[in-house]
Amino acid sequence: MSIQHFRVALIPFFAAFCLPVFAHPETLVKVKDAEDQLGARVGYIELDLNSGKILESFRPEERFPMMSTFKVLLCGAVLSRVDAGQEQLGRRIHYSQNDLVEYSPVTEKHLTDGMTVRELCSAAITMSDNTAANLLLTTIGGPKELTAFLHNMGDHVTRLDRWEPELNEAIPNDERDTTMPAAMATTLRKLLTGELLTLASRQQLIDWMEADKVAGPLLRSALPAGWFIADKSGAGERGSRGIIAALGPDGKPSRIVVIYTTGSQATMDERNRQIAEIGASLIKHW
């Protein structure tokens, strides 16, 4: 067993022997301040990774656009098919120029040779490549099948209805392509620590998230040296922004954090800054 596999296998073990965790309302004060600064709703939840206990939450059962955070769930569904012998990570998928959609920095470079399922998941999570996500959605049967996968996990809230990039439209009061912070946090925890996926697939999923290259201005910008984070960000229309993450000190994750916002007129930089400040408060009061 590799060191990384050992780390993920012992996530519940280490967490069980940690000192009790206590909620700190100071972080919620910052979440509410972010709402004021952005002029928009902000949803927040913080779960203990081992027990699933909610440590703090704000608007945990209000719907927010998922945006690209759905790509972690998508690759979880792909990995479940791999575990069941219905898919192979090494299978190569070929596609054409007509398949390319807006923001496809990886797939646009491989029109000639195609990409493997493993490479597509890596591109979808680490670079948020939209064509990679659409190609992977095709392998599982489309958005409705991802929703069905989530329902089978016990998540009857999260739903995907459309493809990239239309799913980022974020129309107010439109339930399409949305989740709730509580539902997303619980589902992410199941994917990373539950028995739904094999140990190898859980490790692969967290490795992809740990290698995320496009979430630097968010929670990662607030992390002290030595902290662990595996995350996936999302951005959408109407001032929408979000991030889902597993993080913790001492090089291992111990909490799940989900943050979503929508309806702001603020710039992307300002949305990023507010999420980073929430992260800084979380870490300060850990």
Rank of each mutant, 00 (worst) to 15 (best):
residue 38 L to C: 14
residue 24 H to T: 05
residue 245 A to W: 05
residue 144 K to M: 02
residue 75 C to R: 00
residue 214 V to E: 14
residue 231 D to K: 05
residue 194 G to T: 10
residue 180 M to P: 03
residue 151 H to P: 07
residue 162 R to Y: 09
residue 222 A to P: 07
residue 141 G to I: 12
residue 161 D to T: 07
residue 30 K to Y: 05
residue 212 D to N: 15
residue 119 E to Q: 10
residue 73 L to K: 01
residue 66 M to S: 13
residue 54 I to V: 11
residue 256 I to K: 00
residue 39 G to P: 05
residue 83 D to I: 02
residue 238 R to I: 14
residue 283 I to F: 02
residue 148 A to Y: 06
residue 243 I to H: 13
residue 127 M to F: 12
residue 121 C to N: 03
residue 182 A to R: 07
residue 46 E to R: 14
residue 84 A to P: 07
residue 213 K to V: 05
residue 260 Y to C: 04
residue 250 D to M: 02
residue 229 I to M: 13
residue 194 G to C: 09
residue 282 L to H: 04
residue 262 T to C: 09
residue 94 H to Q: 04
residue 107 T to K: 01
residue 216 G to Y: 09
residue 155 D to P: 01
residue 236 G to Q: 07
residue 219 L to S: 08
residue 86 Q to A: 04
residue 45 I to E: 06
residue 57 S to E: 02
residue 237 E to V: 10
residue 184 M to P: 00
residue 125 I to T: 09
residue 130 N to R: 00
residue 208 W to I: 13
residue 64 F to W: 06
residue 217 P to Y: 11
residue 237 E to Q: 12
residue 235 A to G: 14
residue 242 G to I: 01
residue 54 I to W: 07
residue 263 G to W: 10
residue 179 T to D: 00
residue 124 A to D: 01
residue 184 M to E: 01
residue 100 L to T: 11
residue 212 D to F: 04
residue 257 V to P: 00
residue 132 A to L: 00
residue 177 D to Y: 00
residue 127 M to V: 11
residue 168 N to F: 08
residue 224 P to V: 04
residue 75 C to V: 07
residue 238 R to V: 09
residue 66 M to I: 04
residue 241 R to A: 14
residue 74 L to T: 07
residue 236 G to H: 04
residue 79 L to Q: 05
residue 103 Y to W: 04
residue 129 D to Q: 00
residue 190 K to G: 09
residue 27 T to Y: 11
residue 152 N to G: 07
residue 77 A to E: 15
residue 247 L to G: 01
residue 263 G to F: 13
residue 195 E to D: 11
residue 257 V to T: 13
residue 261 T to F: 08
residue 233 S to P: 06
residue 48 D to W: 09
residue 197 L to T: 10
residue 66 M to A: 10
residue 276 A to H: 12
residue 185 A to W: 00
residue 157 V to S: 10
residue 233 S to I: 01
residue 239 G to C: 07
residue 177 D to T: 01
residue 104 S to K: 08
residue 202 R to D: 12
residue 179 T to K: 00
residue 263 G to M: 06
residue 55 L to H: 11
residue 58 F to I: 07
residue 246 A to Q: 11
residue 108 E to H: 15
residue 91 R to Q: 15
residue 187 T to P: 01
residue 240 S to Y: 11
residue 267 T to N: 09
residue 95 Y to P: 10
residue 250 D to Y: 02
residue 280 A to R: 14
residue 65 P to E: 08
residue 272 N to K: 13
residue 33 D to K: 02
residue 267 T to H: 06
residue 149 F to E: 05
residue 95 Y to W: 15
residue 205 L to S: 03
residue 276 A to Y: 09
residue 189 R to G: 05
residue 98 N to L: 12
residue 50 N to L: 08
residue 234 G to R: 00
residue 200 A to N: 14
residue 27 T to V: 14
residue 125 I to F: 02
residue 112 T to L: 13
residue 54 I to R: 10
residue 223 L to H: 09
residue 226 G to T: 10
residue 176 R to L: 11
residue 50 N to P: 06
residue 262 T to G: 08
residue 241 R to Q: 11
residue 106 V to F: 15
residue 26 E to R: 09
residue 112 T to G: 14
residue 207 D to S: 06
residue 82 V to K: 13
residue 261 T to P: 01
residue 120 L to T: 04
residue 154 G to W: 12
residue 153 M to H: 03
residue 127 M to D: 14
residue 260 Y to N: 04
residue 134 N to W: 07
residue 236 G to A: 08
residue 226 G to H: 11
residue 226 G to F: 11
residue 94 H to N: 03
residue 124 A to K: 00
residue 262 T to H: 07
residue 202 R to G: 09
residue 240 S to K: 15
residue 166 E to G: 14
residue 205 L to F: 06
residue 155 D to N: 10
residue 257 V to Y: 12
residue 49 L to F: 13
residue 183 A to N: 15
residue 137 L to F: 06
residue 198 T to L: 12
residue 141 G to R: 10
residue 134 N to H: 11
residue 131 T to S: 05
residue 178 T to Y: 11
residue 279 G to W: 06
residue 172 P to L: 11
residue 240 S to H: 04
residue 252 K to V: 09
